[in-house]
Design a protein around this nucleic acid. Structure first.
Length: 418
RNA sequence: GGAGAGGUCGCAUAGUUGGUCUAGUGCGCCGCACUCGAAAUGCGGUAGGCCUUUACAGGUCUCGUGGGUUCGAAUCCCACCCUCUCCGCCA
């Protein structure tokens, strides 16, 4: 949500931004609606003042009664109009995308992202590297065929060493982030529509959200960002306790509507996966710094895991309506011979906190903290490790930093015994 | 899931025959006084949104949420949410 005051004062910026992001919100209509509301409010306040003054005097004489009734009716009519206008304004405001950072490149999709830097050198294999699914089948670690029977396409079973690997990745990540002052969370996997609106997933991408049947107003979360940012909705966070750094573990559920036929092989694009997520609440002045810090932690993880990667600034067409600026880390996937998205790191500025009414106080002034939402580690790291760490004989080494969490397994080489 | 109780301005409480409730009181917190200093005591102040205003100040909304009744709602009616106690079920 943008500050209505900002929209009033900078209509041209908002219009240009809205157009650039392909939103069909009519900013002029929005401002007209806002103006009407202000006029209405002023009138209602005036009428109410008269009405309240009269009411405070106590019982009216029968002569006064008619007069008061007329006044009351008038206020009611105005209130009804105000309610409608307010709903209209809220609808328009919540459909407005966030302002973009000046350094976000223009573009259509992820091919137009701007490369910031590369780390590591893609390994030259003396053999044709297998893809992660082939490796997963070979070692009886990943099973998508049976998942298809039970749950459908884009689901998977992890088995054997892949189970250890997922948990090891999470343990390793948890340790890293907790040492940096993050508070660990398991969150609910279901959330109310209000929270999905507040975090900016609605109304922008309703088709990617799995809604439960029935009247409970619950949907499966697409990421623990939703539950972790929602954690503080309608709260005032003490200034002294900022920045708040949270690291959340959860399954993530996505319908992947609109991606039919895309990345159908293996477990790259799936309906359900596991993720460790960083969320940071901070004062507005510090969000640039924490955005970069979150990226630095992501890079450190990739480096310690020995996954070659590149960092990109995501272009406007791929940024997502709530984002002010987004970095992706793309890891090297040898079988595809290309970099694929491993993590995503967004500075959301005050977009979410305004919607969720999360405030803090800076020098007695109420302000909306900024939020940073960044991936820590996901199941896609399993893909990256499988493919980058495979040997000619098909075995897979385990990155050293994960050894303490692998129950002694340093190499996957069981072969196919399914 | 069943039965009962409850949700009031940081915390705790008062307030339900509808009418200066413009929400009282205690605690906590802030300021001042007294004191060498502190405690104790006394006095004053202590939510947020929106609007008018240079300021002072004032208006309005919010008593879990949303509707309704009424000239007037913390108070009456309806729906929903949440909490607590007991019972049932259960990893």
């Amino acid at each position: 949500m943008l500050d209505i005051e900002f929209i009033r004062n900078n209509p041209d910026i908002v219009k240009a931004n809205t157009k650039r992001r392909g939103s069909d919100v009519d900013v002029d209509a929005l401002l007209a609606c806002d103006k009407e509301i202000r006029t209405l409010r002023a009138r209602i306040d005036e009428e109410r003042a008269v009405r309240n003054q009269a009411a405070r005097k106590g019982k009216p004489s029968s002569a006064e009664l008619a007069q008061r009734r007329a006044l009351s009716d008038e206020v009611k009519t105005l209130e009804e109009t105000l309610r409608q206008k307010n709903d209209e304004l809220t609808r328009q405001l919540s459909a407005l995308p966030n302002i973009l950072s000046p350094d976000v490149p223009p573009g259509k999709d992820d091919r137009d992202n701007l490369e910031l830097r590369k780390w590591g050198t893609p390994k030259m294999f003396s053999f044709k590297p297998k893809d992660h699914l082939a490796l997963g089948i070979l070692h009886d670690c990943i099973d998508v065929d049976r998942a298809a029977k039970v749950s459908g396409s884009r689901f998977y079973y992890l088995k054997n060493e892949a189970v250890l690997l997922r948990l090891a990745l999470m343990q390793y990540g948890l340790q890293l982030f907790m040492r940096e002052g993050f508070i660990p969370f398991f969150t609910p996997h279901l959330a109310h529509t209000r929270t999905l609106y507040g975090t900016g997933y609605l109304p922008f991408s309703p088709n990617d959200i799995w809604k439960l049947e029935g009247d409970d107003d619950l949907s499966l979360i697409g990421t623990s960002e939703q539950t972790l940012v929602g954690y503080h909705q309608d709260e005032i966070i003490e200034r002294e306790t900022l920045p708040r750094k949270y690291v959340g573990l959860s399954s993530c559920f996505r319908t992947e509507a609109g991606s039919y036929g895309k990345d159908t092989h293996g477990i790259l694009r799936v309906h359900e996966f596991y993720k460790l997520e960083q969320i940071i609440f901070c004062i507005p002045e510090e969000s640039f710094r924490w955005h970069d810090a979150a990226l630095a932690w992501e890079e450190r993880i990739c480096q310690e895991l020995g996954i070659p990667y590149r960092v990109v600034v995501v272009c406007d067409g791929d940024c997502g309506a709530p984002g002010y600026k987004k970095y992706d880390i793309e890891g090297w996937f040898p079988a595809q011979e290309r970099y694929r998205e491993l993590t995503s790191n967004t500075n959301l500025t005050d977009f979410q906190t305004r919607r969720l009414n999360i405030r803090t106080k800076v020098d007695t002034k109420t302000v909306f903290p900024h939020t940073i939402s960044a991936t820590g580690i996901t199941d896609r790291f399993i893909i990256a490790i499988f493919e980058n760490y495979q040997e000619a004989d098909g075995s897979i080494r385990i990155p050293e930093v994960l050894h303490p969490f692998m129950q002694g397994v340093e190499k996957i080489d069981r072969g196919n015994v399914s």
